[in-house]
Design a protein around this nucleic acid. Structure first.
Length: 856
RNA sequence: GCGGGCGUGGUGGAACGGUAGACACAUCAGACUUAAAAUCUGAAGGGCCUUGCCCGUGCGGGUUCGAGUCCCGCCGCCCGUACCA
């Protein structure tokens, strides 16, 4: 295949970008199909169609594109798809704010964002694109839901939501600000609703064990998931009530610290505990207490930070070790965790200690430090469980033992005594998927007065969202849409009502990676395609998804195996995970007369030579560097502007340079300008090399060595996800090539390799240069260059000489000189002689090929 | 509150426990130019008694021949915290 040469010698990015994007498109280079070659599946977390892409998206997709194009050059059959995580609240918020329809808003945003992404020249197979709000997608999700319902992976139970008593609506956590509804300003209450749940907690152990296989996931993400799942070993035991009350003979408690039973000074139950509810019926003060502590949001953070409050029920229970304990209702005990009841041991839990001090309960030490037997006063004594401590009157008869040993011994002791049972408990709760909202996947069930909850028939899927809805009234429009809501029972045909809750948008994103393997199939997946393409070989996205999205996806992969939609090998769907940092940008701010912040667009400010930044009228501007991009702070960088000014390759090159991919990178106009200068330099250099010829000479060998070195280091950078280092090497290599006196053939050969090494990052320029150098076909299809090992070996090495650990000198020695030879040379070094002052070194450390340290 | 991460020149960053500051931005100097821009070349962590020496990787300790890197204790910022996506 041949392409028209771009006539001009100037670096015309618009022409070059369009030319090659068109050529790739016509050649169908990125359309993925099953084949004989080994496959490689690259996936970036798909975007929410918020309106416009920002430079952070560019960074995310540029990274994925580097991997995709590199793997293509390595001969893999690459799948690199793109879609839209299109359901969610912002669309409804926009509808409420401006009266449009969430569907129109969403699809318009998708069109705009696709239009912004295509000019980046990403190697995406656009024929596989879908949005999760497409009925073709969410209909298959409903089919999946029905299969999971049948497999017993879905059920209904009561759960707590944020309730706005003025707007009469359920609020998302982000709609609760300081315990108040964002619109009404009313104090938020917690309310119980019957909701749908996935049985993810049944798979807690498997999800935990599976983490061990995820070798190519960041350690920190595995650790966060491990802590989130939270396996603990503890004791379940019953404290008998001194007098039975409301049909309760005792209170069942789960504790991870049974070893501290001797130190128990109270038992606390959740306000939602059945006994608390029963007591509240006859005790208005307790009922009021329960209402009071239910104020405020439902987030774990809000619950934890809330003031610890209790209500004395007047009941007592018997401690099996002797003595009676008062029973309190406490706001910090959660009904969802364990049994909804705890015993408090103030000496060894700060929260219990605060509670005990507040309500005058005893503090009983059960162990002290081995070297310090002072008793607990203001601060609970909570040493690590691995640290030995001295026990006081320990039930299992221990003296000095670690917490861990004491827990295990006490569980054994309690089981032998018949006091309780050892139990493994998980922090992970079942996944509540019900949302009282319109813009989500309808839950495909019908509520029939006679048959109860009835699944919709698969042939009736998708259960489509009705289009004729309005958002001028608070609450879920599906709930007040009679012709949609009212339907016939799929089982008996009687008048019935549809489920009006829709699914959590995390459901949509929990299986999209599988759908990409057969995006237009009339079943959720096609086994042959899933079997060929799964797993995702490299998944890339933000660390903010480290827990929920990634855990839910792992659960879904297992559930889809159970329901026959994925092969067993896909139970861990993402072989490798990379979490990239954000793109930040400085905020320019002044203050108005009342001291409030006023934000300014970067282009409205000017940098003065002295470094100060001012407005056009001279007002000094406060610069806040490295801030997360936000429309309201006016520091968002729009890739479209960058592409228009500099071309796609500059935008891609810049976001890959400077910062390591896992860290945040700060966008600076100067940085973008420098990136563009470099690419222009490479383009000009290619032109020079193509035009000028020089005879072969002695410099050819040096250039060949530099080429081999660059090939090695750029490749290592890409393989190790250190694109910034690859970029640095490419800067260096381009400078070396520019300065080289080598002959024409040698320079052309080096330039061809440079084009290949640049290709994953700046593909348009790379194709152009490749063509100028007379390369065959597309550079993206050219096999990745290999560094000749013979050219990587240096004859001599420079060894730094340290004296007492500080670098003072250096020597150059043959590469293979032995330690004795090096020592002899070192002892003649001027700096060493001066330091030793005629004496002998106390010690001489030679690390071959690396360093010498003289201890004087 | 809890869990996780990060912290290196004026700036972004580099550095298998082994020469701290590669590469780049900004800065300064020089070349080219009538001039400017563009381009090219070079300098540069801070300090001093400048053949050389001292201090330097958020703060305070420790391990080591040697610590940005490992350990302990702090400080600051970022992410998550189950209905934001």
């Amino acid at each position: 295949m041949t392409f028209a040469m771009t006539a001009d010698t100037t670096y015309d990015t618009a022409a070059i970008d369009a030319k090659w994007q068109d050529a790739w498109d016509r050649a169908g280079l990125f359309r993925a199909a099953r084949g004989d070659a080994p496959k490689y599946y690259v996936l970036e977390m798909f975007p929410y169609p918020s309106g416009r892409i920002h430079i952070g998206h560019v960074r995310n997709y540029a990274m994925g594109d580097v991997i995709a194009r590199y793997k293509m050059a390595r001969g893999f059959n690459v799948l690199h798809p793109m879609g839209w995580d299109a359901f969610g609240m912002p669309a409804e918020n926009a509808a409420m704010a401006s009266g449009g329809h969430p569907k129109d808003w969403t699809y318009q945003n998708i069109d705009v964002m696709r239009g912004q992404m295509k000019p980046l020249g990403l190697s995406i197979d656009w024929s596989r694109e879908f949005a999760t709000c497409d009925p073709e997608y969410y209909g298959q999700q409903q089919a999946l839901f029905l299969d999971m319902l049948e497999a017993g992976l879905v059920y209904r139970k009561q759960a707590t939501v944020n309730w706005d008593p003025v707007d009469m609506t359920v609020l998302a956590n982000e709609q609760v600000e300081n315990g108040r509804g964002w619109r009404s300003g009313a104090e938020v209450e917690r309310r119980e609703l019957t909701q749908w749940f996935f049985r993810i907690s049944d798979m807690a152990e498997d999800l935990l064990d599976g983490l061990g296989d995820l070798k190519d996931w960041p350690e920190k993400v595995r650790l966060m998931q491990e802590n989130w799942i939270g396996r603990s070993r503890g004791l379940q035991m019953t404290f008998p009530l001194s007098r039975p009350a409301h049909g309760h003979d005792g209170i069942e408690v789960y504790t991870t610290r049974p070893d501290t039973l001797r130190g128990a000074s109270f038992v606390a139950i959740a306000p939602e505990h059945p006994l608390a509810r029963a007591l509240a019926e006859a005790d208005p003060d307790l009922a009021q207490f329960a209402v009071d502590v239910r104020r405020g949001g439902t987030t774990e953070e809000a619950l934890e930070k809330a003031e610890k409050r209790g209500y004395d029920t007047g009941l007592t229970v018997q401690n099996p070790l002797g003595g009676a304990l008062p029973v309190w209702v406490a706001n910090f005990v959660l009904m969802d965790y364990g049994t909804g009841a705890i015993f408090g041991c103030p000496a060894h839990d700060q929260r219990d200690l605060d509670f005990a001090r507040k309500y005058g309960l005893p503090v009983i030490d059960t162990f002290v430090a081995t070297d310090d037997d002072s008793r607990v006063a203001e601060t609970a004594f909570v040493p690590p469980k691995s640290e030995p401590v001295r026990w006081i009157d320990q039930p299992a008869g221990l003296d000095v033992a670690t917490g861990q040993e004491a827990i295990e011994a006490t569980i054994d002791w309690a089981e032998a005594q018949g006091i309780g049972t050892g139990r493994t408990q998980y922090r992970l709760r079942d996944w509540g998927l019900s949302r009282q909202r319109y813009w989500g996947c309808p839950i495909p069930v019908v509520h029939c007065p006679d048959c109860g909850v009835v699944p919709e028939r698969k042939e009736n899927l998708p259960v489509r969202l009705p289009d004729d809805v309005t958002f001028d009234v608070p609450g879920n429009p599906l709930d007040r849409h009679p012709t949609w809501r009212d339907t016939a029972c799929p089982s008996c045909g009687a008048a019935a009502r549809r489920e009006t809750d829709t699914m959590d948008t995390f459901v949509d994103s929990s299986w999209y990676y599988a759908r990409f393997t057969a995006p237009h199939a009339d079943t959720p997946t096609v086994m042959a395609d899933a079997d060929y393409w799964m797993n995702v070989d490299q998944y890339i996205g933000g660390v903010e998804h480290a827990i929920l999205h990634l855990l839910y996806s792992r659960f879904f992969a297992r559930a889809m195996k159970v329901t026959g939609h994925l092969p067993d090998k896909a139970r861990e769907p993402f072989n490798a995970l990379f979490t990239q940092g954000m793109v930040t940008h400085a905020i320019y701010m002044t203050r108005d007369g009342r001291g409030r912040a006023v934000y300014h667009l970067p282009e409205d400010t000017v940098a003065k030579p002295d470094g100060l930044r001012v407005l056009r009228d001279g007002t000094e501007v406060e610069v806040i560097p490295s801030a997360k991009m936000s429309k309201s702070k006016k520091n968002v960088v729009d890739p479209q502007d960058i592409i228009a000014a500099y071309g796609a390759d500059t935008a891609r090159w810049f976001v890959l340079s400077d910062s390591p991919p896992e860290r945040d990178v700060e966008w600076t106009a100067a940085g973008a300008d420098a990136a563009h200068k470099h690419l222009r330099r490479v383009h000009r250099l290619a032109g020079d090399i193509a035009r000028a010829d020089r005879p072969a000479n002695a410099a050819d060998a040096d250039l060949a060595r530099a080429t081999a070195r660059a090939t090695l280091e750029v490749t290592e950078g890409i393989e190790g996800f250190a694109f910034n280092k690859s970029v640095a090497k490419l800067y260096e290599f381009a400078a070396t090539l520019g300065r080289s006196d080598a002959g024409g053939d040698a320079r052309r050969a080096a330039m061809r390799v440079l084009a290949q090494l640049m290709a994953p990052m700046t593909p348009h320029l790379a194709e152009e240069v490749w063509q100028m150098m007379g390369g065959e076909g597309f550079v993206v299809r050219a096999p990745w260059p290999e560094a000749d090992p013979a050219l990587l070996v240096e004859d001599s090495v420079t060894l730094p000489i340290q004296i007492n650990g500080k670098r003072k000198s250096e020597i150059s020695v043959p590469r293979d000189m032995d330690a004795a030879g090096v020592e002899a040379l070192v002892l003649q070094d001027a700096a060493v002689l001066r330091a030793l002052n005629g004496g002998a070194p106390r010690k001489l450390i030679v690390v071959p090929g690396r360093i010498v340290n003289v201890v004087a």
